[in-house]
Amino acid sequence: MKIKRLLAAVLSLAMGVSMMTACGSSDNSSKAEKDSSATENTQKHTNDPMTVTTAKDLVAQMKVGWSLGNTMDSTGGSGVDAETSWGNVETTKLMIDQVKDAGFNVFRLPVSWGTHMDENYTVDEAWMNRVQEIVDYGIDNGMFVILNTHHEEWYMPKKDRADKDIEQLKALWKQICDRFQGYDEHLIFEGVNEPRLRGEGNEWIGDAESREVVNQYAKAFVETVRASGGNNPNRCIMVTPYAASSSRQNMEALEVPQGDDKIIVSIHAYLPYSFALDTAGTDQYTSIDSSITTLFTDINEVFLSKGIPVIIGEFGSVNKANTEARVQCVKDYLSTAKQYGVPCCWWDNGTRIGNGENFGLLNRSEGGWYFPEIVDAIKETVNS
């Protein structure tokens, strides 16, 4: 997500505590039981047969996606407690069942890894196990699961930092690849999330140097996955332009690795911006906005026309007590995306009220949906 959610997390913390109690998230299982369950989980998909397919054909099987935001990407707390450190409750299989039942067949799992790595870049085993457990919630539902690296503070796309960044990026993805090498084509790896010059004036625009370093990240990521074992040489994977930006300049600057027909491009686009993302912007939406049509025209010209498939890895609109307008916007957005064969993943950060970016749809503590009208509109549009 574009504006990092410290304020939203603080505002939702008290609510999150009560939600955890209501959800019965406390676990009284013995350590031995937990260890046994973790071992079982790590051996669950050790050798799934893969249907080798091109990225274009794989993306054609996707309808619409849902992202588990502000959860495994949270960077507070310690160890596996980080999952709930931004106010959301512990993720359950029931939650992902509800997502699947609502018509979403893509489950994007954002994960922050840097706070769970030691000085040798080794990922904490308990964290890796928990990530795998949640991945399996989607895989066992027959969903496509996108696993990424999310709020990573250790990489910054500058020339003088590139070598060290790439060293850590390779070390991380080597471990992820090793753990998930037996999974079939339903598991998709996404190398980095919104790589950008964090905190600098040109953070979301970038410059020639930062765009080139992002290309180096993509190259290192692809090479690491392809050099790993199991099904990974044939796995469909995702690369992103600078900041996952939908600007024409940044999309055109992305160097998609050649000779690999299993590469997908990830773009993030909350449009129209004033309505969809700017919390101080308008709550009005009346007809299809030109920014939506421009987005997909550009995507088509830069990528699709060259046989490179695209997924909108993040989209959505914040709650401004304007459900009817949000319904119309999501219908326009997804119907346009459908024309171009571009699946889109709604960013659900679990919050629906307060001063932050309130993209929440799923009521994670009680079940059901905060805005069933929006979920119905999503399902109807992608299935029409």
Results as ranks from 00 to 15, higher is better:
residue 3 I to K: 10
residue 3 I to P: 07
residue 4 K to Q: 14
residue 4 K to N: 13
residue 6 L to K: 14
residue 6 L to A: 14
residue 9 A to V: 12
residue 10 V to K: 15
residue 14 A to E: 05
residue 21 T to P: 00
residue 22 A to R: 09
residue 24 G to R: 05
residue 26 S to L: 09
residue 31 K to E: 14
residue 35 D to G: 00
residue 37 S to E: 05
residue 39 T to C: 04
residue 40 E to R: 06
residue 40 E to T: 03
residue 44 K to L: 12
residue 46 T to Q: 11
residue 48 D to T: 01
residue 50 M to I: 07
residue 50 M to V: 05
residue 53 T to K: 06
residue 56 K to G: 02
residue 58 L to Q: 13
residue 59 V to W: 15
residue 62 M to D: 02
residue 67 S to V: 13
residue 71 T to N: 15
residue 73 D to R: 06
residue 74 S to K: 06
residue 76 G to Y: 11
residue 80 V to F: 09
residue 85 S to V: 08
residue 86 W to M: 13
residue 87 G to C: 08
residue 90 E to P: 00
residue 92 T to D: 08
residue 94 L to G: 12
residue 95 M to N: 14
residue 97 D to V: 02
residue 97 D to E: 14
residue 101 D to I: 07
residue 105 N to T: 02
residue 105 N to F: 09
residue 106 V to M: 12
residue 108 R to A: 11
residue 112 S to Y: 09
residue 112 S to D: 03
residue 114 G to N: 12
residue 116 H to P: 00
residue 121 Y to K: 01
residue 124 D to C: 07
residue 125 E to A: 12
residue 129 N to C: 03
residue 130 R to S: 10
residue 133 E to L: 10
residue 137 Y to L: 04
residue 138 G to D: 02
residue 139 I to Y: 14
residue 143 M to P: 01
residue 143 M to I: 01
residue 147 L to M: 07
residue 149 T to R: 06
residue 149 T to E: 09
residue 150 H to R: 05
residue 156 M to K: 12
residue 157 P to W: 14
residue 164 K to S: 07
residue 164 K to W: 06
residue 170 K to R: 10
residue 177 C to R: 03
residue 179 R to D: 00
residue 181 Q to V: 03
residue 184 D to K: 03
residue 186 H to T: 01
residue 192 V to W: 15
residue 192 V to D: 08
residue 194 E to Y: 12
residue 195 P to M: 12
residue 200 E to L: 10
residue 204 W to I: 02
residue 207 D to T: 04
residue 208 A to N: 08
residue 211 R to M: 15
residue 213 V to C: 10
residue 216 Q to S: 12
residue 219 K to G: 02
residue 223 E to L: 03
residue 226 R to K: 15
residue 232 N to P: 05
residue 233 P to I: 11
residue 237 I to G: 05
residue 248 R to E: 15
residue 249 Q to H: 10
residue 249 Q to D: 13
residue 249 Q to I: 05
residue 254 L to M: 09
residue 254 L to N: 10
residue 263 I to C: 12
residue 269 A to P: 01
residue 270 Y to W: 09
residue 270 Y to V: 03
residue 272 P to W: 07
residue 273 Y to H: 06
residue 274 S to M: 10
residue 274 S to H: 08
residue 275 F to H: 02
residue 276 A to E: 01
residue 284 Q to S: 13
residue 284 Q to F: 13
residue 292 I to N: 02
residue 294 T to R: 09
residue 295 L to Q: 04
residue 306 K to D: 05
residue 306 K to V: 05
residue 308 I to L: 11
residue 308 I to C: 06
residue 308 I to D: 04
residue 312 I to K: 04
residue 314 E to H: 14
residue 322 N to F: 11
residue 322 N to H: 06
residue 335 S to V: 04
residue 340 Y to E: 00
residue 344 C to A: 15
residue 345 C to L: 10
residue 346 W to I: 01
residue 347 W to L: 06
residue 348 D to F: 13
residue 351 T to G: 08
residue 352 R to V: 14
residue 354 G to C: 07
residue 355 N to V: 13
residue 358 N to T: 10
residue 364 R to C: 07
residue 365 S to E: 08
residue 367 G to D: 06
residue 371 F to R: 02
residue 373 E to P: 00
residue 375 V to I: 08
residue 381 T to P: 03
residue 384 S to E: 15
